[in-house]
């Protein structure tokens, strides 16, 4: 099955199963990408896991993203699923408001999502509902902010040896 056929196939199945939960689909580069409603994400991942034809039983990647300009849909999460037998790869996306950054956890389906979700919580402050142990993983517990959000600076701020005039920062 090539990418276009896969896109159509998964789209049909998701629409039939979830109806309004399915928002859109497109082919970006070599990946079929599906945007879903956040409430159904765990069910959708479980559905794709159990579906006999598709059986996406390998979670490749999970990443958060922050678009400050998209009002109402500032934060997003991207899931990459892989069917190792037939080598199908798809990407699922959900977007939601920064004021209510919570989303169902997919740890019931994939144990490996545990630390990936903790990392995105640490970076973006996305709360994964139903996660067994949702706390910061890479940064210190008392950090107080979520550094990967666009409004926070990269640099440390304690250095005194930098001359801002010269570098136009």
């Amino acid at each position: 099955m090539d990418k276009e056929a896969l896109l159509v196939k998964v789209q049909e199945k998701l629409k039939a199963e979830f109806g309004g939960g399915f928002i859109s689909s497109e082919l970006i580069a070599d990946y079929p990408v599906f945007t879903l409603n956040r409430d159904i994400i765990c069910d959708a991942v479980r559905f794709l896991y159990n579906d006999e034809e598709l059986s996406f039983q390998f979670l490749t990647n999970l990443a958060g993203i922050h678009y400050p300009e998209n009002k109402g849909h500032e934060l997003g999460v991207m899931y990459q699923l892989h069917n190792l037998r037939k080598n199908y790869r798809i990407r699922l996306k959900v977007f939601f408001s920064i004021n209510e950054p919570s989303i169902p956890s997919i740890t019931p389906v994939f144990k490996g999502a545990n630390w990936m979700e903790r990392q995105e919580f640490d970076f973006f402050g996305i709360v994964f509902k139903g996660h067994p142990n949702l706390k910061r993983i890479l940064n210190m517990d008392d950090m107080g902010y979520h550094p990967m959000r666009k409004e926070f600076p990269l640099e440390d701020g304690t250095r005194e040896d930098k001359d801002d005039k010269m570098f136009g920062r």
């Binding site: 890479l138 940064n139 550094p147 926070f152 600076p153 990269l154 640099e155 440390d156 701020g157 304690t158 250095r159």
Partner: peptide, 12 residues
């Protein structure tokens, strides 16, 4: 000196 990692998480 912190090297190339002039970031919020690295001791300079």
């Amino acid at each position: 000196s912190g090297g190339i990692f002039d970031t919020y998480s690295v001791l300079q």
